[in-house]
């Protein structure tokens, strides 16, 4: 058994990963709530957002300061710039996805299968295009932080990078949760999720809600992409594994449930972190998410929190 410090380190790693999963999972959950559709190309939105944030951070980083490490405020500014740029890129990608893959089908009243197939096509296209334009290698984000410990939690060191990732992700999640709960847009999203026909009759523009849902999911996923790339790296195939894990998180929390996606993401991150350390080889860490997915579908198909998006948040 490991020491308390080890447990705290695993918990921090799990939370950092889980916060990013939750960011992506929110997009799945919102789109599923509104359209009853799993957006199979959501991982690619995440990937494109990562590239957008990465190049923005590269452009913003002063060339000489990379080695020395910029000051604290500059660091925060850089992370914010990268996150915003990632969110913007993700929003554009999600908008394009909705426009190209889903809207033509919606206008033709296509069966559900067509949406899935079209999304797979969009996913193939986006991955290959990113590979073609950005190269087919892993691209690291320029070192925004010299890897230093800023604080210790129960004896475990927390690097500035991890702190930035967790803070930014939790802030975004909170903002998204309040947006859905409080704003007029959030109300219309929930109304459509509850009963699309009735919402339309009451004056909600369905097209606008669908577009807004995709854009909201895209912003979150794109920002999450940049935060993920900060910890690891960006590559054209990066959307696949986090996309599936985030979907697992969404199912774990209850597909269509905003709070559920949040809780599911954090929980999945923790389970993976601890399970990967205590139960399995490091190489099999990705299997844990799949096992969780199957277990949830078997034991509690409605997820932990179960509720639909339409319920009052």
């Amino acid at each position: 058994m490991a020491s308390g410090g080890q447990i705290a380190r695993l918990a921090i790693d799990g939370l950092a990963a889980g916060a990013v999963y939750a960011l992506i999972a929110l997009g799945y959950t919102l789109v599923y709530g509104v359209l009853r559709l799993v957006s199979l190309a959501h991982g690619e939105v995440f990937m494109l957002g990562a590239f957008g944030g990465l190049y923005a951070a590269r452009a913003a980083l002063p060339a000489g300061a990379a080695g020395a490490g910029p000051g604290v405020l500059a660091c925060i500014g850089l992370v914010a710039a990268g996150t915003v740029a990632g969110g913007l890129a993700g929003a554009v990608a999600a908008l394009g996805l909705e426009r190209a893959a889903y809207r033509p089908l919606r206008r033709r009243g296509a069966p559900r299968l067509a949406y899935l197939v079209s999304a797979v096509g969009a996913s193939m296209f986006a991955v290959s295009l990113a590979g073609k334009e950005f190269g087919r290698r892993d691209v690291p984000v320029p070192g925004l932080f010299t890897d230093q410990t800023v604080l210790r939690v129960a004896g475990a060191p927390v690097s500035a990078e991890t702190l930035a990732v967790v803070t930014a992700a939790l802030g975004l999640l909170l903002a998204a949760d309040r947006l859905v709960a409080w704003s007029r847009l959030g109300r219309s999203i929930r109304a459509v999720a509850q009963d699309a026909e009735c919402a339309v009759l009451l004056g909600v523009s369905l097209e606008r809600v669908i577009v807004a849902t995709f854009v909201l999911g895209g912003v979150l996923a794109g920002a999450g992409g940049f935060l993920y790339a900060m910890t690891f790296h960006a590559s054209y195939t990066m959307g696949y594994v986090p996309g599936i894990k985030a979907f697992t998180a969404a199912v774990l929390g209850g597909l269509g449930n905003v709070r559920g996606a949040l809780a599911g993401g954090l929980l999945l991150g923790l389970v993976e972190s601890f399970g990967g350390y205590y139960l399995l080889d490091a190489g099999y860490q990705d299997v844990i998410a799949f096992a969780v997915l199957i277990a949830v579908l078997l034991l509690r198909p409605s997820g932990l929190l179960g509720a639909r998006l339409g319920r009052p948040a």
């Binding site: 089908l105 296509a110 197939v117 079209s118 096509g121 290959s128």
Partner: peptide, 20 residues
């Protein structure tokens, strides 16, 4: 490596043109 660009576009176009 670029084949999947065309395959993806083909899938999207075929689905959009004749979803049923």
């Amino acid at each position: 490596a670029d084949r999947f660009l065309y395959f993806g576009a083909l899938v999207m176009i075929m689905t959009a043109l004749r979803p049923r």
